[in-house]
């Protein structure tokens, strides 16, 4: 049990630290790797919160596919490091407002209390699948996401394609 606590709080600290590194690093590749670390530590937190299936899916989909895509684009476009602040002083205003928002958000969450159901067990893939097909709204949304992915696929290919030379 002590291992659970250490693992969870450790993962939470790593997630927060690497989240801060995502926005603090100047090189976009360092930001990408900090984001990968964030995602993996979030996967650990998902597993500790009872859904190992979603944890593994997080690693496969996010850290294993989406971030590879990001890395590819960064490397192929040779994205440079950030220089200086955003125009119009928006950066400094954002930091102030961000601090206020962070304090408010954490205060709201911290003052709530959680009483957990006593007969809980960790969920497996079969439970997620049953839940998906149990009620019609999830079922329709599931089918709709397949169409969404198809349209995103076609859209990405069309947008990123090189223009054909005239006359061909």
């Amino acid at each position: 049990m002590i291992l659970d606590v250490i693992l969870f709080y450790g993962a939470a600290i790593v997630a927060l630290a690497s989240g801060i590194f995502v926005i603090a690093q100047r090189n976009p590749i360092n930001s990408a790797f900090s984001l990968i670390i964030t995602m993996c530590s979030l996967a650990v937190m998902f597993a500790m919160l009872g859904s190992g299936f979603i944890a593994v899916l997080q690693v496969v989909v996010y850290a294993g596919a989406i971030m590879v895509l990001f890395l590819f684009v960064i490397m192929l476009l040779n994205a440079k490091q950030d220089e200086g602040d955003r125009a119009g002083g928006i950066g400094r205003a954002a930091i102030v407002l961000g601090i206020i928002l962070a304090v408010q958000a954490v205060a709201v969450v911290w003052n709530g209390s959680a009483t957990l159901p006593t007969n809980y067990r960790d969920t497996a893939a079969v439970d997620v699948a049953r839940g998906l097909f149990a009620s019609p709204r999830f079922l329709y949304a599931f089918e709709a996401t397949s169409i969404l992915i198809l349209s995103a696929l076609v859209g990405a290919i069309v947008v990123a394609r090189k223009e054909k030379a005239k006359g061909q």
Binding site: A12, A15, I74, R86
Partner: peptide, 22 residues
């Protein structure tokens, strides 16, 4: 709490960073 904090960090990043990919 971590979720709220990470969300705020992400929102801050959208305001602060200059690179589109970031």
């Amino acid at each position: 709490a971590v979720s709220a904090f990470l969300f705020v960090i992400g929102a801050l990043g959208v305001f602060i960073r200059r690179n589109v990919i970031t």
